[in-house]
Design a protein around this nucleic acid. Structure first.
Lengths: 263, 263
DNA sequence: CAGGCTGTTCGCATCGTGAGAATGAGGCGA
DNA sequence: TCGCCTCATTCTCACGATGCGAACAGCCTG
């Protein structure tokens, strides 16, 4: 479906360009003839996806995409359930708290509450980060069935981001086992330099991880010992969200990890 | 460009449906043959715009749209400039404060800070509201050139929402004149029952209104006298945002309104 | 076994394609 | 003031890819 593919490519091009683009620029960058570009622009404009920049002959995406994105977001009751817990956690630790879901093998930020302590996180809703080197991602991976873990890691690889990123499959399997033992995941400077992060999964009624919540802090404010304490509290708080999603905590003898394997 | 139009219609259909849809449902609702739907789904999925719902053969929009929408949003420095002022205003009045821009003859919410007083606003970023019956919209209309005002009102009409909505063109022209005199716009229960709202425009370096900021409250907490006081404070605060956007307050003798007419 | 729904395949008509020309609005220099 | 540029946009048209619709193969449920 070539014409549709071109239209989508144009949307992406416009989204990633810092400024509005002219038809000619689009033609050059997408390697599509001018007349086709004009037809695409016309169709997209008719549907309200793009608008002309006021004076100039340049085009940019409209805020319609913002609307559509938020309608997708709004549809899930996860957000409502998680928001008060995000607030509580942020207030308690004074650090930034994130909510993210897995999609297409990566974690997508849906919501955040920034901590009161100064700390620059360049996250926006919709941003995607890898799973193998983040607390959010490992928390979810640990409770996914083994074959999905293999598929995800196989597809995206285990790219190193810092000296401490886990880059071997065997190492990751072991790491996920210890995540299940602890109940929370730890990103010990595995993704961004100088940042530690703890994350816990939100489980749905079947015990499948549908999201994760994390607390991030610079290493100066979060030692490994503090991370452990934070992790315990995080687990308890996130269990509340899982409960709201229909997850029944299993009987004493069975561990959450083993249950989640069943699918 | 039929195929592109269909793809966009499908995106909108998926966005407005509360749940994920199957191919058949889409085919029926869009009146497009099944085989075409499958090919569209495939193309959209290949580009990451839609994903299959876990087990079932249903499709929903991915969070990619959220990402694209926020990238559009991020590009403007209006947000950064406005955020602290939104916070200040919200803290001061304990009411919800909105930032919106005009697009395609309607106001689009870009940001909000909720007030601490209990009050349910069902606004999300990207939501669109009419201009003729909201403080946000009237604040912008008042500073747009007359022909654009005519075009916008002509295109969208002056639909009544409450008993107090201004529904005549002459009435609106008069109203906009008084907005310019005061410097802020008042929505006196013209859009939603029981809600008053004051709004002031953000002007860019040419004096063209590029956005508006409003404070909303239930009538029980905002009398007309309070609205006047709120309006004055709002004007002063929003002038700061206009300044950040390059707007130079004109000399003593000339009124902002008259300047903005020049285009 | 019938009657849903899902997903694929295939020949033929249609629709999108791309090169170029036509239009039209400025801008520049003479 | 008049050509003579350039640049943005639309139009035309013949070709050929591509999307259409019907028919088919699984796969459920009642």
């Amino acid at each position: 479906m070539k014409s549709v593919a071109k239209a989508l490519a144009m949307i992406e091009e416009l989204a990633s360009s810092p400024r509005a683009l002219s038809a000619i620029q689009l033609s050059r960058q997408l390697k599509v003839p001018r007349s086709t570009i004009y037809r695409l622009l016309q169709t997209l404009a008719r549907h309200g996806f793009i608008v002309r920049e006021d004076g100039m002959a340049c085009y940019r995406l409209s805020f319609k995409l913002l609307d559509l994105g938020h309608r997708v977001l709004e549809r899930t009751d996860l957000l409502e359930a998680a928001r008060p817990i995000l607030r509580d956690l942020s207030a308690r630790f004074r650090e930034t708290v994130h909510l993210a879901v897995e999609e297409d093998g990566r974690m997508v930020y849906l919501d955040k509450v920034e901590g009161s302590a100064p700390f620059c996180t360049h996250s926006r809703p919709g941003r995607r980060v890898p799973m193998h080197c983040t607390a959010l991602g490992k928390a979810v991976l640990a409770y996914l069935p083994a074959e999905r873990v293999r598929a995800i890691l196989g597809r995206h690889g285990l790219q190193g981001h810092t000296a401490r990123t886990i880059v071997s499959y065997a190492g990751m399997v072991e790491e996920l086992e210890s995540v299940r033992r602890r109940g929370y995941a730890l990103d010990d400077v595995e993704f961004e330099e100088g940042v530690r992060c703890v994350g816990a999964p939100v489980l749905d009624h079947r015990g499948v991880p549908m999201a994760a919540i994390s607390v991030s802090a610079p290493v100066s404010r979060m030692s490994k010992a503090q991370a452990r304490r934070t992790g315990k509290i995080l687990c308890a708080a996130v269990a509340g969200v899982s409960g709201a999603m229909g997850w029944q905590v299993p009987g004493r003898r069975s561990r959450a990890g083993s249950v989640s394997r069943v699918t």
